[in-house]
Amino acid sequence: MNKDELIALAEQMSIDEYVYDEELGHYTSEGSPSDLAYEIARRFQDVQMFPVLMDLLEQTKRLDMKQYFYFMLGTIGTNTGDLRVVDLLLERLAQETKPTLIVDILDELAKQEQVDDAAAIIKYVEDSRSAVRNSAIEALRVCRGDAVEDALIRFITTSTDSFEITSANFVLATIGTKRVIPHLLPLLDHPKGDIRHSALNALSELGDDSFLPMFLKALEDRSVDVKAYALLGIAKHGDASAIQPIIKRLKTMLKRQRQIQSDDALVAMRFLNRYRQLDKTIPELFDWIITKRWDVLFDEEQQWLNEYRTSH
């Protein structure tokens, strides 16, 4: 696309129109000019647009138009993996001063395959504006290195914002190394369940089977989410010593009809299935679930048990 076509597309992206969908029973923007324009932009792969988009970003004064051009630039990088997009976005990050545009650039950086120089992102992790901090933390997910780890370690040990600490913990689960572990352990005693479960998730990703006692203890946590991540940790690092705690947890889950669907019971059953030849209480448990608790199971759980039943 040439300059005029890109401007026209950006203008179309700003046209939000909603129509009432009688079948869905609510208003939707699907099929609106904006929706169609975004669909076109999401397919961009032409690296020849780089200089045109950079010129447009330099020339335009409208904040919303800049947002659309950043979206286009970031999309090309996502679709092609061209690392020049990272350099161009970092160049613009150093120039923009409006929080909205800083957030947009950080969000586009977060969608890229890799960012080698994270210094420009790290400085925003402790920004006074929460939206900027949140986007910076997410952008570090595609970064690596001691400086990135140090910034996130400093953040999770000094911040008082539970949502942001949780986000940082999940990023550390993706990019962290074992040196992060000592800084995550104290968070297991944090009063906020979100922080406890995100720290547990990171320890599951970064730790080893020596952490099994910690995951077993977390099965007794008052938070359902902490229990869920404890199950995942046990599935990854557990051994036969976890059989009875898992059976206990599974029976508790299936005592009544659950309101929110999750994979917890499937995780538990798949773990137990590894040891069905070693412990006779496991096939007995599965038989009990099939005969007595079938009506409280979700479809995927019933499907798994049907497959189990036909293969044994």
Rank of each mutant, 00 (worst) to 15 (best):
K236Y: 08
E205M: 13
V226P: 03
I156Q: 01
S241T: 15
D194W: 08
I243D: 10
H197L: 06
A240E: 14
L203E: 03
V226F: 06
M253I: 12
G238R: 02
F163S: 10
A202L: 02
L250G: 00
L184Q: 11
A240R: 15
T177L: 07
G238S: 09
A139G: 04
A131Q: 11
K178G: 14
L172D: 05
P213R: 10
T252M: 10
I243S: 02
H237G: 12
R129M: 09
A240H: 01
D194P: 03
I165R: 11
E220F: 03
L231W: 04
D221A: 02
E138A: 05
D161E: 13
I181V: 12
I153Q: 13
L203F: 09
A218Q: 02
T157H: 02
T157K: 11
E164R: 15
T166R: 09
F163I: 11
E164A: 14
S162I: 06
V224I: 00
C143R: 10
L140K: 01
V224N: 05
S135E: 11
D209C: 11
A240P: 02
D161S: 09
S159P: 01
K251F: 00
R249N: 12
F155K: 03
R141A: 11
V148S: 06
L200D: 04
A235E: 12
V148M: 08
A242D: 02
T158K: 14
Y229N: 09
H237R: 05
R129C: 04
K178W: 01
R179H: 15
Q244V: 11
D221H: 14
K236D: 04
S167A: 14
N134P: 00
R179K: 15
V148R: 11
S162W: 00
A131W: 06
A242P: 08
S162D: 05
H183P: 00
A235L: 00
D221N: 14
I175H: 02
P213L: 12
V142R: 05
E205Q: 13
V226W: 02
A230W: 04
A139T: 05
L254S: 02
L140P: 01
